[in-house]
């Protein structure tokens, strides 16, 4: 229940947005949530040599309620996918997702029975960082790109955009399910 449900887009919301977006950009708290190999590089990025988290004002929070950013760092398996979705739902709006590494982007080298081929089948993704695993510098770049995106964040448009994407995903899943039949 944020402000995005209460107002139509107007001159007021856009100018207020610019202040808010600066604040959002400068304090992207990320969910302490590692999946696989990329998690180690994500931790490395937060450690003394790179110090991504504190320099950009990114505290890590263990509770999804207080996080703004989820870095999906690693392989999403079919067993884990519902959990990832649940964590995403538990986060408070506005929220962003960085898909870190090839596994989270497209499944990576694990094209097997157990692995979801890309986390964007489960949750909407804002920035994709390629690499297996990406260097901390690559994650930097991803975060900077996300900050560029956040500074242009439009509260109302974002809400509609997410809803559209979710509806599209649900629809195409239903279509594919109808085509392939139920799980064996």
């Amino acid at each position: 229940m944020g402000i995005e449900d209460r107002f139509e887009k107007s001159i007021l919301t856009t100018s207020v947005d610019s202040v808010f977006n600066w604040a959002r950009r400068s304090s992207l708290w990320w969910l302490q949530f590692g999946l696989a190999c990329c998690a180690i590089e994500m931790i490395s990025a937060a450690m003394p040599r790179f110090d991504i988290s504190e320099r950009f004002g990114m505290l890590y929070r263990a509770s999804p309620r207080q996080a703004d950013l989820m870095i999906v760092s690693g392989t999403v398996t079919k067993k884990m996918a519902p959990v990832v979705r649940q964590l995403y739902d538990q986060m408070a709006e506005p929220k962003w997702v960085i898909s870190m590494g090839s596994c989270a982007n497209i499944g990576g080298p694990f094209d097997t029975y157990a692995v979801v081929q890309g986390v964007d089948q489960v949750i909407p993704v804002d920035v994709y960082v390629p690499g297996c695993p990406p260097l901390p510098e690559a994650l930097y770049y991803g975060v900077l790109e996300l900050q560029n995106k956040v500074i242009r964040y439009d509260t109302i448009a974002r809400k509609q955009s997410v809803d559209e994407a979710e509806a599209f995903r649900e629809q195409s899943r239903a279509e594919a399910q109808a085509e392939l039949g139920p799980r064996r």
Partner: peptide, 18 residues
Amino acid sequence: GLLQPIADGIKLLVKEDI
């Protein structure tokens, strides 16, 4: 980084209240 606390404050203020 002197504006960091202010940014944190504003951001927390406009977050969704679950």
